[in-house]
Simulated assay, not measured.
Amino acid sequence: MLQLLDVRTGYGRTEVIHGVSIEVPSDGVAAVMGHNGAGKTTLLRAAVGLLKCTSGKVIFDGEDITRLRPSARVARGLGYVPQGQQCFPQLTTMENLQVVADGRRNGRQLIDEQLDLFPALRDLLSRRAGLLSGGQRQQLAIARALITEPKCLILDEPTEGIQPSVVAEIEAAITELTRRGDLGVLLVEQHIGFALEASQRYYVLESGRVTASGEGGSASEADVRAAMAI
C-alpha cells in the first residue's frame, strides 16, 4: 500500500530523517513510536508531501508519488490527520463535515457513516467546532478525513492530550476501521500498548532512524521501551 523507501528529509539544511524505510499494509496498521523529537511528525509530513524528500522514494499503490503535491496524493487516496485536533472553529460540527462532503456523489452517506463511527458527534452537529472538547475535535478531524474515502489514513498522535474515555472511543474506531479490511493506517502513537495491539507492524524511531521494528503482536511494551532508550 504505502512504502517509504530510504527516505531522507528535514528542514532547510538540517536533515531530520536519515534513510528511513517503512511499509504500511493495505488492510492494517503500521505504528511508529518514539520519544518527542525523534522525527515522527517529520516522517509523516514527508509521506503526505508537506516536506520534500532529499532522497529516497514514497510509493503508494505501486506508484512513485515522491514528487507529487499533497493535493495529488490526497486525490489518489491518502488521508492525513495532523496533531492538534484541527478543524474550522467558527463552523458547526455539521458544517465541518459538509465542507469535505460537498461535491461528493455520496456525501450524505459518508457523513452518516462517520457519525455511526463517532456517535458522540450526533448530539453536537449544531455546536461550533471551536466549543468542542479536545477529544470531540479529534473525532471530528478523523471523521472529516474519512469522508475523503482514503485508501490509507495517516494519523499523527490521535490520542494525545485527550481524556481517557474519548481515547478509548478513538482507539475502538481505529480498530473497527482496520477490521473492515479495506484501509491501511500509518499511526504515530504514544500509547505503546494500544499501538502494539492495533498494528501488524511497528517501528521505533529515534533521532531520525529506525532502531527497532517487528510484528505488532510479537513485541511487548518492555521491548519497545528498551528500544526507545537506545
Rank of each mutant, 00 (worst) to 15 (best):
L121N: 08
V29A: 09
V167E: 08
Q200P: 00
I65Q: 01
G19V: 03
D223K: 07
V20R: 13
Q83S: 09
H18G: 05
T54N: 01
A31K: 01
L97T: 11
V188N: 06
V32Q: 04
G12N: 00
Q85K: 12
A227P: 04
A229K: 14
I59C: 07
G217I: 09
Q83A: 06
D123A: 15
E215H: 15
E197L: 11
M33H: 10
V99E: 10
Q138W: 09
Q83P: 03
T54R: 10
A219L: 13
G39R: 15
P25M: 08
A168F: 04
V32H: 05
G216I: 04
D156S: 03
E189M: 07
I147F: 08
L121F: 06
D223L: 03
L153F: 05
V210L: 13
L132N: 12
V188I: 13
P158W: 05
A30R: 13
V167Y: 12
R13P: 00
V58N: 09
L146G: 11
S133M: 03
T211I: 11
I174Y: 06
L124Q: 08
L153D: 03
G77Q: 09
V16G: 01
R137V: 00
S133F: 03
S26T: 11
L4G: 10
D64N: 15
Q85Y: 08
I147V: 09
N106Y: 12
T175V: 09
L187F: 05
L51F: 04
L43R: 15
L131H: 14
E221Y: 00
G84I: 00
R128E: 12
R225K: 12
C152D: 00
G208E: 02
A120V: 07
Q200D: 11
Q3D: 11
E15C: 01
P150R: 15
A31Y: 01
E176H: 15
Q86W: 01
D27W: 08
L125G: 06
M33D: 07
P82R: 06
L183Y: 14
G135R: 07
D182L: 03
A72I: 05
T178I: 10
M228N: 09
G62L: 03
S165T: 13
G130A: 05
R67C: 01
Q3A: 12
I17E: 03
Y11K: 01
V99H: 07
E171D: 02
G214D: 10
C152V: 15
F60A: 08
L50V: 07
V48K: 02
T42C: 05
H18M: 02
P25H: 13
T92F: 07
L117N: 11
E169D: 09
G77H: 08
L43W: 14
A226C: 01
I162N: 10
E113R: 15
A129S: 13
